[in-house]
Simulated assay, not measured.
Amino acid sequence: MMVMFFMELTYKKPISVVEAALPLHNQYLDRNYKLGNFIFSGRKDPHNGGVILANVADLKDLENIYHEDPFFRQGIADYKILNFTPTKMNDVFAQIPLR
């Protein structure tokens, strides 16, 4: 059975601190997209955090990955993890090899 993870980030620092760390956070995102760990990400509306859909083997792998995020390391955001088992998906997502 395959499991995927949504990460919900909620900022706990002012937006000026978030924006200052954004270049490093974007490098972190880019690295994980290249590794196939992330499927999509984006900011929440209202802009008080963001979401990431992760395609990793298990929760331990996910923890190791998000502990590298500058937002985590600098205490900028709290992380809420939701794991789920995909049972149906759009054909576009069906091409993604689930881990």
Rank of each mutant, 00 (worst) to 15 (best):
P23C: 11
P23L: 07
P23V: 06
L24S: 11
L24Y: 10
L24T: 03
N26A: 10
N26L: 14
N26F: 11
Q27Y: 06
Q27W: 04
Y28K: 02
Y28V: 03
L29K: 14
L29S: 11
D30W: 06
D30E: 15
D30V: 09
R31N: 14
R31L: 13
N32I: 00
N32G: 12
N32T: 03
Y33T: 08
Y33I: 08
Y33E: 02
K34A: 15
K34Q: 15
K34F: 07
G36R: 08
G36P: 05
N37W: 09
F38E: 09
F38W: 02
F38Y: 07
I39K: 09
I39V: 15
F40H: 02
F40Q: 10
G42K: 06
G42S: 13
R43C: 08
R43K: 09
R43N: 11
R43L: 05
K44C: 03
K44L: 15
K44M: 11
K44R: 14
D45F: 12
P46D: 06
P46V: 07
P46W: 10
H47I: 14
H47Y: 12
H47M: 12
H47S: 14
G49N: 11
G49V: 01
G49Y: 05
G49M: 00
G50E: 03
G50T: 04
G50W: 11
G50S: 05
L53Q: 05
L53G: 07
L53H: 02
L53P: 02
A54H: 07
A54L: 00
N55T: 01
V56Y: 03
V56H: 06
V56S: 12
A57V: 10
A57Q: 08
A57I: 09
K60P: 00
D61A: 13
L62A: 00
L62N: 11
L62I: 03
L62W: 07
E63K: 12
N64I: 06
I65W: 10
I65L: 09
I65M: 13
Y66R: 06
H67G: 08
H67C: 10
H67M: 15
H67S: 15
D69M: 01
P70T: 05
P70G: 01
P70K: 00
F71W: 03
F72A: 08
F72R: 04
R73G: 00
R73N: 10
R73L: 10
Q74P: 04
Q74W: 01
Q74C: 00
G75E: 03
I76S: 05
D78C: 08
D78V: 03
D78F: 02
D78P: 00
Y79S: 04
K80D: 10
